[in-house]
Amino acid sequence: MNNQYENNNKFFSRFLINYGQELVLLASIIILFVVVSQVNHRFLGGNNLNTIFAGNAYIGVAAIGMSILIITGNIDVSVGALIGVLATICGTLAVSGYPIWVAWTAPILVGIAVNSLVGIIVAYAGIPSIVVTLGMMSILRGGLISVTGGDWITDMPEGFFLAQQDFMGIRVPLLALIFFTILMFYIMSNTTWGRSLYAIGGNPEAARTSGIDLKKGVVIAFAVHGMFVGLSTILFATQLNIIQSTVPPNLELTVITASVIGGVSIMGGTGTVIGSSLATILFAAIGSSLIFIGVSAYWLRAIMGILILCTVLADMARRRRVVT
């Protein structure tokens, strides 16, 4: 009996260690929803949930890719610029008469190509990813302006607007976020490749001795991240009837924040994509709830900052309790 209890306890603390941040985020989301719906019951209305979940799913999908990258000990600060470039490619193809599936596939392929190149420079030339992607950000941003000159893209064909569709009563972006989160969570915890990602970031020496090709591993992680940037772009570009062909301001910070607050260790080696997806939703919900409870718009960002800081400190407090 006693033994059984101890086992349970062990299981519980293991669970806390492994998924603690996810639980903190989930609890925060639930508390937020309960409290804010007391103030204004419309907060939990179907339309508002759609705005929070579906309207921000593209950030979550990009954060999945970012999490994979960060787990291997790398980072990508060019993600916002790349989404801007890929959205322009996607929209331009759609209005120049190419079939819709071509317009949808192109951002994924270009995303993979660009990030594979970054991965190759990082892995084989030994330049830290933050440096290469800082450079890439500059190149993509300048390139986008030179090419488009800032024209908006309108008149996309019927059927292009994937992110506006419902499937079984749920918006496609939310479905995509849930699907890819579960898929990548499963792959990363249950396949050799997935576990090798954690090894590359957590303990490269051990990974090398156990026969993992570190360089190839990093390139593949970048390529997979590129694919998710492409997928994120499709949700981004098909949400409205117009595409603004500029770089969305500060998007890279939003995506990186979602990943690291989601529990992905910046030192590499730990974290899950469930955490980053929950963090995306939490931030979106905070942004929306501050409007719902009528916080003065001037103080909105300060309160957002305090709440982010609280999430971070809550996680640290939890970790300390688990360790001691």
Partner: peptide
């Protein structure tokens, strides 16, 4: 900001609120 998706989400939040 000068961000169309954020503008879209903010307008939606106003409609919902």
């Amino acid at each position: 900001q000068e961000d169309n998706i954020l503008s879209f989400n903010q307008a939606n939040t106003l409609i919902n609120k």
